[in-house]
């Protein structure tokens, strides 16, 4: 399976939600499309590669030379690449390099966590500020075991971090829920992610009774800020926008469907008629 598109059409947050919810394994590549009239928020690489293992982020690189993790180890002065190359043959094939080095006592769990932070947890949230880019997800791409620490991160948690960092929301403005819409929870109980204080505040009011504009009022937030928070809750899959309901209807009869049940003979007749059209 290969999926391609532009971030302006299918945002990074939506891609991450799709890959996590679909428990996908493979490589997501993102090639930024730079606007010559704008200075990017951070120096952009030519291409980014994010590796997913059963819906979780297992590694991230900017090259496909399988040397990224070794470069990080060397840069930190922990292990030379010659040493790494001597240790790797001692481990079974298809084990991540990080776990291999740990099992041989070359590095410890804390080293792995720091490497993973530098490789995945810190850089990927920055990618949410890429305004336009071509993305491709390839589920046939093998997992790069030499780039993997053995740790993984939830794309939803990364999405939350990325969208909290985002300063320029212009590319996402048309994707935000409308201020007149209501937001309803799609999960039982509390969200399984780490929300911050203001996100919890908004979460407390997303019961489908208040429009986003009214949630903003009761939480003393600017309406746009409430829309951004609701967007965050939506893209991590814990809430859904219901457009067109600014206030709940109090007129019970208006809510009841104005229709009658259909008889079995009617349904049988209609099915026979349509089946004749199927030819």
């Amino acid at each position: 399976m290969k999926i391609t598109g532009y971030l302006s059409e299918f945002s990074m947050a939506e891609i991450f939600r799709f890959l996590e919810q679909g428990h996908k394994t493979g490589c997501l590549s993102i090639k930024p499309v730079e606007d010559p009239n704008e200075i990017p928020a951070f120096p952009l690489a030519d291409e980014y590669y994010i590796f997913f293992n059963h819906g979780n982020i297992a590694a991230a690189t900017t090259t496909l030379d399988h040397q990224g993790l070794q470069r990080l180890l060397e840069k930190r002065g922990w292990l030379r690449s010659t040493t790494v190359k001597k240790i790797l043959p001692l481990c079974p094939v298809n084990i991540s390099m990080g776990l291999c080095l740990k099992s041989q006592g070359a590095i410890d769990a804390e080293h792995l966590q720091l490497l993973f932070k530098q490789q995945v947890l810190s850089p990927i949230p920055q990618l949410f500020s890429i305004k336009e880019g071509l993305f491709k997800f390839d589920d046939q791409h093998p997992l790069p075991h030499w780039e993997m620490t053995g740790l993984s991160a939830s794309p939803m948690e990364i999405t939350l971090a990325g969208l909290r960092l985002l300063r320029d929301w212009v590319p996402l403005m048309d994707k935000l829920p409308l201020s007149t819409s209501t937001i309803v929870s799609t999960v039982q109980g509390k969200p399984p992610y780490h929300l911050n204080a203001v996100e919890w505040q908004v979460w407390e009011h997303i019961n489908g009774d208040l429009s986003i504009a009214n949630i903003a009022k009761v939480t003393n937030l600017p309406v746009l800020e409430a829309q951004k928070i609701c967007f965050r809750l939506m893209v991590i899959g814990v809430a859904e926008e219901v457009a067109g309901i600014s206030e709940p209807s109090t007129n019970k009869t208006e809510q009841e469907p104005e229709k009658t049940e259909l008889s079995q003979s009617f349904l049988d007749g209609l099915l026979n008629f349509l089946k004749s059209k199927k030819g």
Partner: peptide, 13 residues
């Protein structure tokens, strides 16, 4: 795929 978001909104509606 750019319309899946709109489809989702219609569905929720």
């Amino acid at each position: 795929p750019q319309d899946f978001r709109a489809a989702r909104r219609i569905l929720a509606f």
